[in-house]
Design a protein around this nucleic acid. Sequence first.
DNA 1: ACCGACCACTAGCGCGCGCTAGTTCTGGGT
DNA 2: ACCCAGAACTAGCGCGCGCTAGTGGTCGGT
Lengths: 331, 331
Amino acid sequence: MAGNVEKQTGGAGRRVTAADIARAAGVSRATVGFVLNDTPGQTISQDTRRRVLAEAERQGYRPHSAARALASGSSRIVLAVLPDWPMGFSMRTTLEAASLALQEQGRTLITHTPPHRAAARPLWEVLDPEAVLGFVPFTDEQARSLRASGVRRVLPDPGEPLPDFLTGLAEGPRLQVEHLAARGHRRLAFATPEEERVRSLAEERARTTREHAARLGLEPPQVHTLRIEDAADTVRAWHRAGVTGVVAYNDDTAALAVGTALRTGLRVPEDLAVVGHDDSPIASLFVPSLSTVYLDGDTLGRHLAALALRPDPTEAPELPSPLTLVLRESA
Amino acid sequence: MAGNVEKQTGGAGRRVTAADIARAAGVSRATVGFVLNDTPGQTISQDTRRRVLAEAERQGYRPHSAARALASGSSRIVLAVLPDWPMGFSMRTTLEAASLALQEQGRTLITHTPPHRAAARPLWEVLDPEAVLGFVPFTDEQARSLRASGVRRVLPDPGEPLPDFLTGLAEGPRLQVEHLAARGHRRLAFATPEEERVRSLAEERARTTREHAARLGLEPPQVHTLRIEDAADTVRAWHRAGVTGVVAYNDDTAALAVGTALRTGLRVPEDLAVVGHDDSPIASLFVPSLSTVYLDGDTLGRHLAALALRPDPTEAPELPSPLTLVLRESA
DNA sequence: ACCGACCACTAGCGCGCGCTAGTTCTGGGT
DNA sequence: ACCCAGAACTAGCGCGCGCTAGTGGTCGGT
C-alpha cells in the first residue's frame, strides 16, 4: 500500500482534527484555530502560518461542523422551508441567488420541502439553523417549536405582518388582470388547481385578482378549481357565462385550461384568453405557448438573504417589484 | 408579563438544556439522558421517568443536535445530492418514500441540489452526514472531499460499479423501445434535451435505446438533441429519413417533439409516435397526451434507504424493477 | 449476620472546536 | 542593568450531550 496520509495519523479512518494539525505543525491547538479562522486580533508569524496551512492541506483537514456549531453557538445554516408547489424556474433562480448571497456571508442555505406525513421532528430541530425562511406563514405549533429550537430569525415572523417578499408573491394577478383588461376582456375567471397545499397562496392570488378587477371596473371574477376530470364542464360553463379571460394560478393550471378549451372546440386566445404564472419551461413549449408572469428570482433571492441576516429585525430592506408580464400566444 | 417558562430558567432566551431538566426534576444529567433516549440496559423507576418526561415537556426541551452529533459521533443525517434535472413526479415520490423509511430508523433525509456555481464548501462538509446518496457518480475531487469529511457511506460508491438503482434509471428506454417495436416502428430516434446537466443520464439512456433496438432487430436509432430553435428542422429530418418512432429522454423533450411535429403538419401518433419518460403531470395534460414510462418511486425510495443504512456495504438488497409503461395518445 | 445480586441511580470524561486569559520571548528605551 | 510594550504564542475552559464506570441501597438466600 502507498503510505497514505490517513495511515500516518494512526487510527484507520479516524477523521483529522485540529489537534492532529497542531501536533504535526509543532504548535498548539489554539494557534491552529487562529490561523485557519484568520481570527482578528491575533498576531501569527508568517512562518507558523505557512506551516499550519501546509499541514492542514496535506492532511486534508476539514473542521467538524457539529463541534464548531457547538462551540461557536451558531450552525451558520439558513433553512428555507419550501412549499410543495411545483417549483417553477423563477423559484429556483430565487433560491440560487439567495444561496449565493448567503454564501458570501459564510452561511449555507439548505432548502427543504416538508413531507406530507408530518416528520417526527421538524428539520429545524435537527439542523439548528440560524434562520428559517418560510414561504407560507408558520402555524402556532411550528412557531413554538422554532422558538424552542433557538432559531434566531424566523421569516415570516409569527405575529408580525407578512413581509413584502410574500405579499409580492401574490401580486402577479395584478399584471394578469391588467393585461386581460387592456385586451378588452370584461368578464374574467380565476382558475386554481385542486391541490390542498397551494390553497393559501391560491386564495391570496384570487383575492388580488378580484381586487384589481374591481379597480379596473370589470365584472367580479369567479374563482374555479380546475380538475382534470371535469375541466371540460368548467370551461364550457365559462363560455356560456361569457367569460373570455382566465387568470390562472400557475402555468400548469393555465395549460390545463388551454388544453381543455382546445379539446372543447374553443379557440385560444380568440374565444378564451389565458394568462399563466411562473414562466415555467412548459409555458413556452405548450401549443399555443402561454402568456405568463415572470418573477425575477435574482432580485428576490438577494432580498431574502438580506432579510435572513439583517442584524436588526425591525429594519427591513426595500424590495423592488420582481414581476414582469411575458407575452406569448395564449392571451 | 405572564411568568413564562423561559424566564424561570434565568437567561433571557437561553435554550433549555438537559441540565436544566435534571435540576428541575431533581435528578442527574445522566438520568435525564437515559430517560429521554430510552437507553437500553438502564433501569429507571416509573416515578423518576415520569418526572423527567413531565419536566422536559413543560420546559419545551429540545436536544441540541450539534452537541448530540458531537458526542455520539453521528449526525443521523442522510444527504441526497440531487441532479439538476427537472424533478419529475416519480422522483419526488422516490425521495418521500426514502425519507419516510429513513425516519423510521431515526434518520433525517436532506435533499440538496448543488448550485451551478460551485459552493465554497460542499454541503456534506457542512452537514457531516452519515451517508450521501448521489444520483450521478461523484467526481474524484468530490470523492476525496467526502472521504475527508468522514462520510461513512457514499452512494454510488466511487470505485465500485454503479448500483442497480442507478442503472435502473437508465432502463426506461427498454420499455419505450419495446412498445414502439410492438407497434411496428422500425426506425427510431432518441431525443435528448440540450441541458448539459442531464447529459450523463441521457447518454446512458441513448445507449440503452441502441442496445434494445439492436436486440429487437430494428434500425440503429440516431441520437438527436432537440432544441426549441431548430426542433422543426430535426423533426422534418426525421420524417424525411423515415423515422416514425421517437424515444424521448423525458416528458419535456417528448412534449417538444410532439408539439413541433404538430406545428410541422405531422400527425401524432400516425406520422410520428413519441414515448416520453417520467410520467410528469404535463404528460397527461398535453394535447395529445403523452405515452410515457412510470417509475415506481415508493419501491425505489425504500431501496435507497436500505442501501444507505445497510450495515455491511458488501451485501446489497435486491431491487425489483420499478418501471412501467403508461399508454396514452402519443404512441 | 453476612454475602451477592440487582435496582436505581450519579460522577465525570470525552467528542472537536472557539476563544479568553494568561505566559514567554524579543528588542528598544532609559 | 533594568523595565516594559508588544509580538507570538499556549493552557485550558466551556459548549450540550452520550455513555462508562462506578456507588449506595434493598432484598432474598444461607
